[in-house]
Nucleic acid binder design. Structure first.
Lengths: 165, 165
DNA sequence: TTATCTAACGTTATATCATAACAGTCAAGG
DNA sequence: CCTTGACTGTTATGATATAACGTTAGATAA
């Protein structure tokens, strides 16, 4: 199984368009320098791959591309770069899909929720402000000290719903 | 790795105590009969195993127990029973842990959030009413037709926080 | 400059999680 | 009785993820 959505010229959900890629990469590099993190060639390329992808990519999807470009060909190469990006807040892991996606709002300290379309496999990062607040509240009520959360919704995006009518 | 929390006589979080197991099983059976679903021996036993476990169990943890008791010894045996229970609303899948847990409130049409303790591996099912409402709202704002959602929080439960002080 | 140190890379090997496909079993209904 | 369909169990394989270790390359100190 590949997790990559079809690049058929039609794009369901709003995502980081190619036009933004360069800007986000530059911002990522600036941010990395500032924090002492090293955005190495593999890591940079993985971020680029995620930014250019429609939908989320599995680690092995990423690995395949890396391998074809002369980077290492074994799973740890992809997983290490992906985990680095997640740690840096430059990417998110979508557990429901066993996949990764570039962060749409890097640099901002935000909690995200993901809207996963079952029709076109697109993954949209939604603002989870209110959801997060409610979850904080629920955790507090249970006496639970919340560190971080995964919020993933599955359904159909607006474009696909329109198309289905 | 095993996903089962230690059964050390100390239990961090409130969970389905042994006293409730019989009652929940009976309710599950009644419900199954009502809907035409068949709570067969394997399925019933898997539910029982989940109910008695502290924390969530991986499919292979469950399989090991089944196998030791004379049921089938191959992965599909566990996965089929677990998926049945999830479909029936008798169990939940915790994606973050690649594990399953018995539903604390079977029969009620509820949306659940899970509070996962990193110290003791306990998994508590919290009421996700408000969280769910906020998520519905966020989805609506994005024009997304929400079918179902995964809400999983990671942190430290109250008992472990107390113990750590 | 050169020696040294460390983070990152790439590899081999293996662990862990999950499902496809098919054969045998058994209870319910014709 | 016989068919039917749901369930169980099996073999086999696929998909996801990490441990461990040697090598490389960039930074730092001498």
């Amino acid at each position: 199984m590949t997790t990559q959505a079809q690049d058929n010229g039609f794009c369901c959900a709003d995502h980081s368009g190619a036009a933004n890629v360069a800007a986000i990469l530059a911002a990522a590099e600036a941010r990395a320098r500032a924090t002492g993190a090293r955005l190495t060639p593999v890591r940079r390329r993985v971020l680029e791959i995620l930014l250019q992808a429609h939908g989320a990519l599995g680690a092995y999807d990423v690995l395949e591309k890396l391998s074809a470009e002369g980077f290492g060909s074994q799973p740890p190469v992809a997983y290490r770069a992906l985990n680095f990006l997640v740690d840096q807040g430059l990417a998110h892991r979508i557990r429901r899909l066993n996949a990764f996606t570039a962060c749409a709002h890097p640099g901002q300290d935000h909690r995200a929720a993901f809207l996963i379309c079952e029709s076109c496999d697109s993954v949209t990062e939604a603002d989870a402000g209110a959801v997060s607040a409610a979850l904080d509240q629920a955790a507090k009520a249970a006496g639970f000290d919340l560190a971080r959360a995964t919020i993933e919704a599955v359904g159909q995006c607006s474009a696909c719903r329109e198309a289905a009518r």
